[in-house]
Computed example of a mutant assay.
Amino acid sequence: MFLLLYSVTYTSFADELPVKQNKPIINIPAAEARLASKSLLLDITKVNPNKLVVVGEHGHILLSSDAVNWQQAKVPLQTTLTSVFFVNNELGWAVGHDATILNTVDGGATWQIQQYMPELEKPLFDIIFKTPTEGIAIGAYGLVFRTNDGGISWHNEFHTEFLLPEDAEYLAEIKKEDEEAYLDEASSILPHFNRLVLDKQTLYMVGEIGLMAKSDNFGVTWEPFDDIYQGSFFDISKTKQGDFLVAGLRGHVFQSKDNGITWQAIQTHTTALINDIVLSADDRIFLLANNGTLLESKDQGQSYQLRAQKDGKSLIAGVWFNGKLIAVSDVGVKLISL
């Protein structure tokens, strides 16, 4: 089966980075798999109090009303999917490898391709919408795509505000001498962008090399935070008390009580990579990490208790659902016993 892609163009605050012309592609739909809920799954979201959606390898997207029984959705690609987001009960998006963006208008039962660009050879890691039409997706090497029409078209942005001064000078020099070399360097010089969180009108992003930034115009321009750590961050969250938490490599967690002006390192007594922050309905904070590491805080993130999972499998993402912690891992969906 052949499929024509939606239009994709490149825009930039400094330069336009052209991409190869899109050609018709052969897409193979995700196969129905009886054990899909036990396969590698990379993200989970709570659409409403009665519905969960998870995404993962081989284009698997699954839906459940109880976190026990799962129904596989119809997905037009077998690409690994890394993140899923719903703006309301019916309208959602998923992103993944090959700069893939999928869309659903029926609550996740069926999905359509909005973007698939294997020629980029870059994954997208997160996606968020603030309205049914305004969305942004981020990924490896500073990859950013934006839509203002619900995904009918996606436009790539090159955010020069994340360039180090010496990198900006380097790009300017090689642009004068070799346009092709400039395009190659520009497409790989930025750090990985890992996670987006929207808090009212402010959008937050964390990523590689200690990247933390905020935007008051939905990512059109970004204001990087001061450096507090040179390792990667994989999640940022605002607690019910209004504090910010960021978490990432080697068990590093930092807390801010003044909207990111100052940060305090929090001891976790683990070196496991922390993938996700989950807030419970009863004011607990859970940190989901590799190697079966689960950390629980009952004091607004000041201290954490280790709740090691016996199977040692990585906890990649999670949600609080009907009074339970539901996580996804490299062995599928896990109902965490607390």
Rank of each mutant, 00 (worst) to 15 (best):
L35C: 12
H159K: 09
G92W: 00
K298N: 12
I261V: 13
S64M: 08
L203Y: 00
K310D: 10
I26M: 11
S153I: 12
G107N: 03
V253I: 05
G135L: 04
V54E: 02
K200F: 09
V54C: 03
V75L: 06
E134D: 09
V75F: 06
G139Q: 07
H269I: 14
I228R: 03
A94Y: 01
M1T: 12
G323H: 05
K130T: 06
Q201W: 10
P24E: 14
K46N: 08
E185A: 15
A172G: 12
S215D: 02
Q241G: 08
I277N: 00
E121K: 13
A181Q: 14
Q114V: 06
S314K: 04
N88H: 06
N290T: 09
V331G: 06
S232C: 08
D199A: 08
G248V: 06
G260R: 01
Q21S: 15
I26H: 13
T45L: 08
S256N: 04
V84R: 03
Y6F: 15
D43F: 07
F86R: 01
T110K: 00
L42W: 05
G150F: 02
Q267V: 11
D98Y: 09
H269P: 14
F234Q: 00
L163M: 06
W320H: 01
L335I: 14
N27H: 14
A14G: 15
P191Y: 07
E223L: 10
I28D: 10
S314Y: 06
T133E: 10
A36I: 07
Q302R: 11
K214A: 01
P191A: 05
V319I: 07
S297Y: 02
A289G: 03
V319Y: 04
F13L: 14
H58D: 14
P123N: 05
M205S: 04
Q305P: 15
L124N: 05
L124C: 07
F158L: 10
